[in-house]
């Protein structure tokens, strides 16, 4: 298992990948991708138990579902750098005939992806289904899902949140990327959601908070705790407090880079802040 320095080095490289991918096609979503870079790296390199290669059914391994599919750049970078497909393929992001669609999909057969996402609010239901299938198959592995905080404004989430608690789907860990931003501004300005923690708890979930969601060690510690809370009759929610645009100073703490690519100059500034640790694709 990689050590903390290795995880941090990979995170830096993933940030470069994200910036270069969206810059090349002048489109995509760098803000949320950068905010979740530490989480994805830690999830795939440390937290999840996965089998060699890729099998859609994912029996005998942990599964991950990305519900807020627009942060595909970080997903693709980490999947590639975890061995699911060649790193060079990151060059094809959002281009015609690519497996790396703007939003993730199974349609082109990209290894590592098990469901299409992009239209928001659907991923938790899918994760619950996969978790229920694991129970039927006596497969004692965990299903993880990631959701944006703004995404919780979609009503289907609350159907899923109610179901998971009622049916004791306790092999599910749903992570909420709590960055407080969405397209039109801060979540508090667009549609204040009150206490997400209180809401999940009121629905019957166990909730833990990771205050430093951009700190690899804090994520490892928090997710390890989350794992210990599975199998106890309740689904587990992790509130991951992140900074949108993390690691690129002019992109941080703002919704402005939700869905905007850097220009040439901005790319150079961003890359200068993130050294090439493992080699660019």
């Amino acid at each position: 298992m990689p050590n903390i320095q290795q995880l941090e080095d990979l995170t830096t490289q993933v940030r470069r990948d994200i910036l270069r991918m969206v810059h090349k096609v002048n489109s995509g979503h760098p803000g949320g991708s950068l905010g979740c870079a530490e989480f994805f790296v830690t999830l795939y390199q440390d937290i999840m138990e996965t089998n060699e290669g890729f099998d859609m059914d994912g029996k005998g391994e942990d599964l991950f579902f990305l519900s807020n599919g627009h942060i595909s750049p970080v997903y693709y970078s980490v999947l590639a750098r975890s061995g699911y497909f060649p790193v060079d393929e990151l060059n094809t992001f959002r281009l015609i005939d690519s497996r790396l669609q703007g939003h993730p999909t199974t349609h082109e057969g990209l290894p590592g992806v098990r469901i299409a996402s992009g239209s928001l609010g659907q991923g938790m239901s899918v994760a619950i289904g996969a978790a229920e299938a694991k129970k039927l198959n006596n497969d004692n592995h965990i299903v993880y899902s990631l959701h944006g905080d703004g995404e919780l404004q979609e009503g289907q989430n609350w159907e899923a949140i109610m179901y998971a608690a009622a049916r004791k789907v306790d092999n599910l860990i749903s992570i909420i990327d709590l960055n407080g931003q969405q397209i039109d501004g801060s979540t508090d300005n667009v549609l204040p959601m009150g206490s997400i923690k209180n809401k999940f708890e009121a629905f019957g979930w166990t909730v833990i908070e990771i205050e430093e969601g951009n700190n690899v060690e804090a994520i490892i510690k928090g997710m390890a705790e989350a794992k210990t809370l599975t199998g106890k009759g309740k689904p587990v929610c992790v509130l991951l407090k992140t900074v949108m645009g993390n690691g690129v100073d002019f992109m941080m703490h703002t919704h402005a880079w939700h869905g905007k690519a850097p220009n040439d100059e901005q790319l150079e500034i961003g890359l200068a802040q993130n050294a090439e640790t493992l080699g660019d694709y």
Binding site: G129, K134, Q156
Partner: peptide
């Protein structure tokens, strides 16, 4: 699943992952 058809469709999609 109760009166929650959207969730039902999503759960069904997820259950196929695992061979159901």
């Amino acid at each position: 699943v109760g009166i929650a058809e959207a969730n039902m469709i999503g759960i069904a999609a997820g259950m196929t992952i695992g061979g159901k």
